[in-house]
Structures are given as C-alpha cells and as structure tokens.
Design a protein around this nucleic acid. Sequence first.
RNA 1: UGGGUCGUCGCCAAGCGGUAAGGCACGGGGUUUUGAUCUCCGCAUACCAAGGUUCGAAUCCUUGCGACCCAGCCA
Length: 554
Amino acid sequence: MSTNDNQFPSNFIRQIIADDLSNNKNNGKVVTRFPPEPNGYLHIGHAKSICLNFGIAIENNGVCNLRFDDTNPEKESVEYMESIKRDVQWLGFTWNELCHASDYFEPLYNYAVQLIGQGQAYIDSLSAEQIRAYRGTLTEPGKESPDRNRSVAENLDLFKRMRAGEFADGQYVLRAKIDMASPNINMRDPAIYRIRRVHHQRTGNEWCIYPMYDYTHCISDAIEGITHSLCTLEFEDHRPLYDWVLDQLQTPCHPQQIEFARLQLEYTIVSKRKLNQLVTEKHVKGWDDPRMPTIAGLRRAGFTPKAIRDFCERIGLTKQNSWIEMGVLDYCIREDLNENALRVMAVLQPLRVVISNYPETQVEQLEISNHPQRHELGKRQVPFSKVILIEQDDFAQLPPPKYKRLVVGGEVRLRGSYVIRCNEAIKDTDGNVIGLHCSYDPETLGKNPEGRKVKGVIHWVCEQQSYPAEVRLYHSLFKVPQPDNEENFLDALNSDSLEVLTNCRVEASLADAKAENRYQFERTGYFCLDAEDSTDGKLVFNRTVTLREGWVKD
RNA sequence: UGGGUCGUCGCCAAGCGGUAAGGCACGGGGUUUUGAUCUCCGCAUACCAAGGUUCGAAUCCUUGCGACCCAGCCA
C-alpha cells in the first residue's frame, strides 16, 4: 500500500493542502475552523462546510475549531448557538476549541488602535447614507471623506470615546484607510467598527462598539492559528481586504483564505433569512420541521449523520455554481437505510380482508426476517389471523396493465405469510370497495404453490393485533427546482408538502418504537418515529424517503 | 461600462499537453416472498465558440460568447 494512494476523491482544496504539506508550509500543520454566525439553525449547506472543514482536518491529522462569528448581536441568540453545537455533534464531529469572535473583542480593539496609530484607520462622521454616496459605483471611483485626514491623535481620542459610550449609535464609524478609487469596492475604506448599543448574548453591555466581519474574521483566524480559512465564493473579493488587514498588523500568522461554491439543492432553499421567514410566518412548524433542509429538520425526518456526510462527499467541491438534484440526497439516505433499517409492515390506507376459510379464533405467530439480506439482524413474530388489513392500492377492480397485486379471482402472496385468492369485493352503495373476501392456501406458508406462479407480494397487518398510528408523508417544500430564483419564493411553496394519514395500522412489534429507530415499512418507504409528537398512547411516524419507484401507475 | 470568479454527459465531477474516470439520473437483461435490494449491460469521436501553437490540446495562447458575485454602519 503506497502512501500516495488517494484515500479520498481529488478536489482543488485537497490539492492545495497536499501541496502545502509537501512544502512544509505552516510546519506541516492543518488547522481549520467552522465559523457560523449564530443567527439561525444550520442547514444542509452548512453541512457541506462542516464536512469540509472537519474532514480536511481529520484527513491531515489537524484540528478544526467551532467558532461563533458573533459580531452582530442584534440577530444572534443563545438558542441558535446551542442548536449549532448540537447539530455539529450530531453530524459526528468534535471540535478542537469552542471559540467566539467575541472572545477577541479586546485584542480586536487593540489591533484597531494599532491601525489608527499607523495612520491606516480613521474615524468618520459621515452618515451611512453619505458613506454610500461617497463610495462611488461599480464603474465610478469613490471620493474621500472630509474626515479621511483627521490626525492620528484625534482618531485615537475619538475611538477611545466611541468605546466609552460618549457618542450616539451611528454618529461615528471607524474606517480602514485603503483606497477610495479601488476597482474592488470592498477596498474603498470599509467600515470596521460601528457604534451599536445592543445587548450581546455573551459580553452583555460591556461593549457599545462592535467590529465588522471583514476586520474580525481574518484576525480571529490568525489568533487561532488557522492555516486554511475556507469560505464560500461570495467572499472572493473580500480576500484582498482579509490580506490587507493581516499585512498591516503583527498577528501570530497569516492564514490562507480559499473559496468554494456553496451548495444549492433543488426544490429547497438554503438561505438563512428565508428559512427564518418560513419559520416566523409559520409556513412550516419550526426549524426542525421535517420538510426543512435544516440539520434539525433532516434529523427529525429520519436522516442519518452518515447519509448526510456521504452526500457532502458525493457532491464534490469546486468553484462552480451548481445545482444538486434532490435525487442525490435521496440516494444517500436510501443507501444507508436499505442496509441498516429493520423491515416491518404498516398499512397506511387499510382495506379489510376476511379470510373465509381461516379458523375463526385462531391466531398464528409467524416468524419474519427483520432484513432480507442481513440475517444476523434476526426475526420477529408477527401475528396472523382471520381478518387482516391490506393497502387499498393493492387491490384493483380494473387493474392497469402489468398490475401484479390483488384482483377478484387472482392470487397474491402476503409477505411472510400465505398466498390468498380474492373471491369477492364488498362494495358500499356508491360502489366503493370496502372489503374483500379471500381464501388462503394453507400449503403456501414458507413455500411456493406447485403448478402455478404467484407474482405479486403485498404487505399486511393483523386487524386485531396491530396498532393505530398517524403517518406523515412529506413532499417537496417547493413546486419549482429553484425557488430562490422566483420573484417571491413564497409563491413557489408547495401547499401539499405535508400529507397526514390518520387511519394507519402498524404491526405489533412497533409498539415500543424509539425515535432513533429507523424502519423500512415494506414496499412503502423508510420511516421513523416522530421525536416530538409521539406519545405513549399515540404513534406518529415520519416518512424519511420513499423506496425507489421501479414501477409507476398509469 | 469597473473588479472578481466560473464554463467537461440530463445533474454533479475527475482530468493539470499523450488521445474523455466515477457517482446520481435514465434505458435494457438477470436474481428476488419488498415493482425494493443486488447484479450485468448501455449511456460525451467529445470538453462554451472560433482561431492559433504542437507530432499530439479539454489541458497552452488569442479573441469572442454565456453564467455567477460585489456599491450593508450584515455575515
């Protein structure tokens, strides 16, 4: 086994790191960080970044910090911080250090004093609107603020007084003195500190000035000894500013910022602002609604950390803006659940079947495998008796071509049980089928009948010894592949994304299902117990994903 | 009209001057007491376009074309 064997698929960041390592850059160390702002729940797009940052560290015997980019307290909260920690851990990652940009407020302040002392930052009294007007446009250079040449001493004094709370919010701002004519707008004297009297979830009322992202992020990275600062494409033209700040200051190191394309998944959205709107305006039941692309939502829907990690690896990593089809995520969760979920039977829309030639009071306990391939997962007992329930869809008065389920006069195998023949359909006055009279072949338990082949196999539960359950089927949240591109994304919401079935019956073994357990309801999909709404007296299951459809009606 | 970035199969994506990996999706065959799984086969004479360099170009050069991002005291 050669050490050059590629353990992981190649991507441009892995290549950069491999090169750095071979050049002994950073003394051969790899330190990354996952730096969310605690202003919402993490979503599948964050999972991509988490898997990248933690994965890169693990692969290279490095470490990864979890850092909260908490420099804008207005939108941030402890609830969000807690949910982020929970989600990262649930995904299976362990951070090296738990950090906060707010841990660095004091050093950040001191670095700013240094910048002012070097004549590279100044206090501006222009209003926000004036600053915007002075900034110029994409094609025209900006003009310098009248305050740009304020003396160092005056800047130092004003900055100190800003911190001391002598000025009103918005009265002054600290700006980096770079180049108002730069073709890169981010370099036209960006604001790096603003006055804002907001209570901070960690520092309370200690500060009334807060540093801006561009100034904070690079210094935070440097303080933590980050070697590779991985972020998304929209920060590409912030990199010159990232580098400028570190070039002016004597920081412990100068991390390399590398940008990659953020995840875009079809039929959903990964904008925190819009996800927040869905929650706030109650288009969904919360951040952990199973229809949400949040980690919490995916978790509640029954996704596994492994499937999500696998997804993040499969979609690749590039600088190309791309849209991933939902089918890839579906594939990943099915692959995991197919291998690991126990098989059970549940009838979602029951049709009553009386087996005429079966003894009136008899109940048989049939032994059925928990998994068709993995016999080590054992067997369970499933009761069978004279009255059973099957899926309404598994009987047809007028069967479509190639239908292999039950029809009057036809036979079908009851999964793990006998072959039955349908003798008669019972109808109500409107002609709706409300029940079937069938007969069973006692010779067909565990073996095929002689002289004829029975193609169809359907699932069932015993009417008496089964449990009622509510089953929630989830459909895509949006009707169009790219709701983000709509004029108003809410118009693209799928009003039928939640389908609640309340007359379902599940087999007896599901009575003590646990929220972490994942099941395949044979022939219908993968399900898990809802962690929130299931109670001792009420079973509620969420459909994680359907089985792959190899046959479509009509 | 400024700056930055990106164009390889329906969707992702390897490829780094030596003659188009792989995955998802899709189509077809086989196995199957889940129309699932598994398995086998098929699926870009072609890499945004046009020129050029070269024995040889998706890879290098030139010129076009298209897409995305940037004018918060958000991150």
